[in-house]
C-alpha cells in the first residue's frame, strides 16, 4: 500500500511554504504545529527584509492559501512525538486535542524552527531584572508600545548569545545585524530626537540591499554605530548606564540610556533533536540539523530517505531564505515521490 500523504512538522514560514508547494501538485499534506496558530515566530514580527513586508501580513497570505487548498489538512496544538521509518514509509505518532493518533506518510518535511536565546544568561545586561532592558524579539512583539514610550537614548547590543563560546553559541545568528538596523531605524523614525547607538562587532549585512540599508540607517538617520561589545549595564538613577569599549578608538566609554535592546541569538529548538535522531538524521555540534554533503544528495534539503528539512532548524536564516528552503524541500519531496512511485511500479 502506498500512501502518498506528506507530513510537514512545523507551521512556520518554511513549513507553510513547503506545504503549499507540495499541495499545489495535488498531493495530500498534513501540516502540524504545536502552537495554536500557524506562522511560527514570524507572525509576531514587524517589517521583514528585504522589502519590509509585515510579518503578520506575510503569514496571513500563506494561511489564506493553505485554507483555500483542501489538500492541506492543518493540525494545530499538536505535537509529533514519534516519527519512524517503517517499510519505506514514515509512521508518525502525535497527540491532537488529547487524542493520540498514528498515521503513515510517504514523505516528511521537518521545519521545527528555532528558539530564542535566553537573555537572562547574561547577568551583566540584567535582562528580566532591570526595567528598560528588552530583547530584539520583545521589540518585535511590543513594537507599538515601545515606539510610543519616549526615550532620550537607546542602545542596541548585538551578538547576545551569538559568537560567545562561554555563555552562548559559537556561531553567528546571521539575521541580527539586519533586524537591529531596522529596529534602530523604526525608533529613529518614531522619535527623531532620540539618540540611538548600536554596539556591534562586525556588520554582517549579506543580504540583497542589506549593506545599503545599514548604511542608510547610519547616513540618513544618524544612528551611531560603535564597534565593541557592551561590557556591562548598570541600573543607576532610574536609567541604564552602559560600559563598553569603542574598540576602533581603543577607549573605554560610558553612556546612559533609557532603552537597551539585546539582539539575542537563534538557538536550536528542542523539538528538532528528537525528530531528527528518530529518522536517522544527525545534528551538528550546536544542535542544528547536519546536512548531508552536497555531492551526496539530489536535493539540498534532504536528510534521510523520504525526509527533508527546511528553515531555521537547519541553521539561523532570514524569512526569505526559510521560504526558499521550504520550496526546495517541497521540490525534493515531489521528486522523491515521483521516483519512488516509479520504483514501486
Amino acid at each position: 500500500m502506498l500512501n502518498e500523504g506528506v507530513l510537514v512538522v512545523g507551521g512556520g514560514v518554511a513549513g507553510m511554504q513547503a506545504a503549499i508547494d507540495i499541495a499545489a501538485s495535488g498531493k495530500e499534506v498534513v501540516l502540524i504545529d504545536k502552537d495554536k496558530n500557524l506562522g511560527g515566530h514570524v507572525k509576531e514580527y514587524g517589517a521583514l527584509f528585504p522589502d519590509l513586508t509585515e510579518g503578520a501580513s506575510l503569514v496571513e497570505q500563506k494561511v489564506r492559501i493553505i485554507k483555500n487548498n483542501p489538500k492541506i489538512k492543518v493540525l494545530v496544538g499538536t505535537e509529533v512525538n514519534k516519527l519512524q521509518q517503517v517499510e519505506g514509509a514514515l509512521k508518525a505518532s502525535f497527540i491532537n486535542t488529547g487524542n493520540p493518533q498514528e498515521q503513515i506518510f510517504s514523505a516528511a518535511v521537518i521545519s521545527t524552527g528555532f528558539d530564542n536565546f535566553d537573555g537572562k544568561k547574561y547577568g551583566e545586561y540584567g535582562y528580566g531584572r532591570f526595567p528598560g532592558v528588552i530583547t530584539g524579539i520583545d521589540f518585535e512583539h511590543q513594537e507599538e508600545a515601545i515606539l510610543k514610550r519616549p526615550v532620550k537614548t537607546a542602545v542596541f547590543i548585538k551578538c547576545v548569545g551569538s559568537r560567545d563560546r562561554s555563555k552562548g553559541m559559537p556561531y553567528c545568528s546571521k539575521i541580527c545585524c539586519m533586524y537591529t538596523a531596522k529596529q534602530a531605524l523604526e525608533l529613529k523614525k518614531a522619535q527623531p530626537n532620540a539618540q540611538v547607538y548600536v554596539f556591534y562587532m562586525d556588520i554582517r549585512s549579506n543580504f540583497k540591499n542589506g549593506e545599503e540599508f545599514v548604511r542608510g540607517v547610519m547616513e540618513n538617520q544618524h544612528v551611531k554605530y560603535i564597534r565593541g561589545r557592551v561590557g556591562k549595564v548598570i541600573p543607576t538613577n532610574g536609567r541604564l548606564l552602559i560600559r563598553a569599549e569603542d574598540t576602533l578608538m581603543g577607549v573605554p566609554i560610558e553612556l546612559e540610556a533609557d532603552l537597551v535592546v539585546l539582539a539575542t541569538a537563534m538557538v536550536p529548538s528542542q523539538a528538532t533533536q528528537s525528530l531528527v535522531t528518530q529518522v536517522g538524521g544527525k545534528l551538528d555540534n550546536n544542535g542544528f540539523i547536519l546536512p548531508i554533503p552536497m555531492a551526496e544528495s539530489e536535493n539540498p534539503m534532504s536528510l534521510t530517505k523520504g525526509v527533508f528539512y527546511a528553515g531555521a532548524c537547519g541553521f539561523p536564516c532570514d524569512v526569505k531564505d526559510a521560504m526558499n528552503q521550504g520550496s526546495a524541500a517541497a521540490a525534493g519531496v515531489l521528486s522523491y515521490l515521483q521516483s519512488n512511485r516509479g520504483a514501486a511500479k
Binding site: E124, C159, R163, M201, R227, G228, R229, V230, G231, K232, R243, A244, E245, D246, T247, G250, P252, I253
Partner: peptide, 11 residues
C-alpha cells in the same frame, strides 16, 4: 580573541 572589547569595557 575576537577583539570585542568587553574586557576593556568592564576593566
Amino acid at each position: 580573541c575576537i577583539s570585542c572589547g568587553k574586557c576593556t569595557g568592564v576593566c
